[in-house]
Design a protein around this nucleic acid. Structure first.
Lengths: 240, 240
DNA sequence: ACCCTGTTTTGGTCAGACCAAACAAAAGCT
DNA sequence: AGCTTTTGTTTGGTCTGACCAAAACAGGGT
């Protein structure tokens, strides 16, 4: 009865890799649905005829790929991967990159570059409801000027609308990733209602340019906005 | 919900996590140099006073983060993370995304968007030596017209120059990632000297526009180029 | 020097065990 | 009944110790 169910031992490749592929297939096939817990490790042992070591390694690999979400003592939860999961997988490495010299600047420059292109695109192709959504985000931003915490949230939300306009799910995922990665430096930036008001006006400039279908003005406004913000953030890690 | 890209650490007291952090620190501190093999598992057991299980889990986690490179039966090799490692970490998930409906299109659209912005930027800010490098790549591309395999390589190399112009290491990493992810579909695209010649002329258009400092023309040429290419690629996975 | 061979390392896998947190059901209280 | 408490079970996390096979190493013969 202690006979092995797994017959072939390829011996050149890891058993865990094989298990990973099998579970991946089950997720892709819908056998393991999103949100449902993964079968217990001991069940997987029987099902696939491997040792617990292999199962655990496979689950860990799945988790690192974002296909399952495993909290310390809970059953791992299956996650059909989304575009944000892809970026989340890069999270660990990005942490190191940010710690390296110039890491924050490189990433932030990339964001500015991307976002400048987004507003340019928006000025040319945004639909009416996109512009309305942008307006709503702008209004919410204005209303939050007195409250710096709320202002930060509405600030992020305003920019998020920009990433939604192309209707490509990659962009919102990028926005989430950028804000998550840069937030640690961001929150250290001094904030005040006065600064909030200035930032709101920058947002307003961007909105107006998009509404007026002026790509160059939109791009210029956004660059001015984010470059100014950079100056404020830079002070928080002069040591690097 | 504040669904973060980085899974918030839920007061996890996993021994492996602690080990991961310690080894990370040693890599960051230069104690473990890039390219050197990681200490044997049994040494780590003694050094950190944990079981082999924990050590192996930690090494696996490190590997998934791209901090070490572990082939099946070799000593893991330390890798100081670069920007491409970050994208490589996302590789696993991206594979699933590409398999999903519209996945390839979403990613390719993102690439077109990015690259269009790059050429626009290049037309405005490329330095003389950038333009010379582009010219060299273009010439190599022309010379390779008769040889489809060589043409593909020089094609990629030409686009790579575009990503180098901003002098931001994030972009070349993105280029590597994009080509790696899209290559499987790309190689299935029918190729011929005639098609190569057409593509070369598109490249030539892009180069000329950049040299002439005409952002709009550069962007238009690139969009025409990549959108045309999409039409050829699309046929390779109509099933999706 | 070079190639072959036997020994030692070292990663990969397995088995069985224990603990503590999470979960679920039964028991107790209001 | 409805809710809280207790208890038993499940399940992930860790440890120990062992074995195998491939890689790295050390000699030995040519």
């Amino acid at each position: 009865m202690s006979d092995q169910v797994a017959p072939p031992r390829p011996s050149s490749y890891r058993a865990a890799d094989s298990l990973v592929r099998q579970i991946e297939a089950r997720i892709a096939a819908g056998d393991l649905v999103d949100g449902a817990p993964l079968p217990p490790e001991r069940d997987l042992i029987e099902t696939y005829g491997v040792s617990r070591t292999v199962v655990r390694e496979a689950v860990a690999a799945l988790a690192s790929r974002g296909l399952v979400e495993s909290r310390p003592r809970y059953r791992p939860v299956v996650r059909r991967p989304g575009y944000d999961a892809a970026l989340a997988a890069a999270d660990g490495v990005v942490g190191h990159l940010l710690a390296q010299s110039g890491g924050v600047k490189n990433l932030y420059d990339t964001r500015i570059f991307l976002e400048a292109s987004l507003v340019r695109q928006a000025a040319r192709q945004a639909r009416k409801d996109d512009i309305e959504a942008l307006k709503r985000a702008l209004d919410a931003n204005e209303a939050a000027i007195p409250d710096s915490a709320a202002f930060y949230r509405t600030d992020v939300a305003f920019h998020a609308v920009l990433y939604d306009i192309p209707k490509n799910p990659v962009f919102p995922a990028l926005h989430k990733a950028f804000t998550a990665w840069l937030a640690p430096h961001w929150v250290k930036m001094p904030r005040s209602p006065e600064r909030n008001r200035v930032n709101f006006h920058r947002h307003s400039d961007i909105y107006n340019a998009i509404r007026d279908r002026d790509p160059d003005a939109a791009e210029a406004a956004l660059n001015a906005h984010l470059n100014a913000a950079w100056e404020y953030v830079r002070g928080t890690f002069e040591a690097i």
